[in-house]
């Protein structure tokens, strides 16, 4: 449309936050039901994992607090349920809801930390590949291609079986399957940005490559990553759940949502469905919320769809 106006002086006096709240982004967000729903789900999860441990009555990993007599209690609305354990208990008398609160925390932290690590690694490699080109580019991108030709769960499974299990190993496995998407996105944007005249202007100004990359290229390739990163948290939660379900994920002392499903899986067909199903529903809800948010961000931040 018409080129951007010289900004009105009144607009200049408003603070950054006010401008943001009055922006088209927020305007569209408010009108987008799924975006509001998605961010609400994500927000509730974050609230739950931060405040949850102070609210739920039981720390499910403090053996002293467990009562074997209360094992396999059904949810509160079923016969035999207890108002103490809303979603029932497992075989050791752990409150399923409390397990979910603690498990969500582990799942989310793994997802976020792995995403941050993958983003850092992938962005760095993508910038290097796109900016310098040549053999370095070919080398990095061929590794990425090889990485992509394996299903990510399979790759993670290989790595876990090689390095052993543990929280740190899960993170390493997730980062090594997750960096590729950043590297490819960033490399593409970098190729596009370095063609632009402002990068040439920086060269003519005598800026060293390191400064050109950090000051000029990096800030201009980040926007599409927001979408990738958001959706990846969801993907990582799922991959981690699969790994834990397969028994090569987090240790039993730090059970994530995936491990909770596995723990309940043995008794799933004995009618004790709540031990597995509730953690499963929570994973689904979390990933659903993240994806709704991601889809909204994709629509908003992708200028081609506008």
């Amino acid at each position: 449309m018409a080129s951007s106006p010289p900004v009105m002086s009144a607009a200049m006096r408003r603070s950054g936050l006010q401008l943001f709240l009055a922006s088209e982004f927020i305007h569209n967000y408010r009108r987008n039901l799924s975006a509001v729903l998605g961010s609400l789900i994500v927000f509730l999860f974050l609230a739950m994992v931060t405040a949850g441990p102070f609210i739920v009555s039981q720390n499910p990993y403090d053996v002293a607090q467990l009562d074997l007599m209360a094992a396999f209690k059904p949810p509160v609305w079923l016969e035999g349920g207890s108002s103490e354990f809303w979603l029932g208990t497992d075989g050791q008398g752990r409150d399923v809801l409390a397990s979910i609160v603690y498990g969500s925390r582990i799942s989310l932290v793994i997802g976020l930390v792995a995403m941050a690590g993958a983003c850092l690694l992938g962005t760095t490699l993508g910038l290097i590949a796109g900016f310098y080109g040549g053999r370095l580019d070919a080398f990095i991108m061929r590794i990425a291609d090889i990485q992509l030709s394996f299903p990510s769960v399979l790759t993670a499974l290989f790595l876990m079986s090689a390095f052993g299990t543990g929280l740190d190993k899960v993170l390493i496995a997730l980062i090594s399957v997750g960096w590729v998407v950043y590297a490819r996105t960033v490399r593409g944007s970098t190729l596009r940005e370095t063609q632009k005249e402002y990068v040439q202007a920086a060269r003519v100004s005598g800026l060293p490559n390191r400064k050109i990359i950090l000051r000029h290229v990096l800030p201009n390739v980040l926007t599409p990553l927001i979408v990738v990163a958001t959706i990846q948290v969801g993907t990582f939660v799922l991959i981690e759940a699969s790994l834990s379900f397969l028994g090569v994920g987090v240790p039993v002392t730090q059970p994530s949502l995936g491990l909770l499903i596995k723990n309940g899986f043995d008794v799933l067909f004995s009618g004790l469905w709540w031990v597995s199903i509730f953690p499963g529903l929570f994973i689904m809800l979390l990933v659903f919320g993240i994806n709704l948010l991601g889809d909204f961000l994709r629509d908003e931040l992708n200028p081609r769809l506008k």
Partner: peptide, 8 residues
């Protein structure tokens, strides 16, 4: 000067 912002 410049072409004004057509919205204002």
């Amino acid at each position: 000067g410049n072409v004004p912002d057509i919205r204002r």
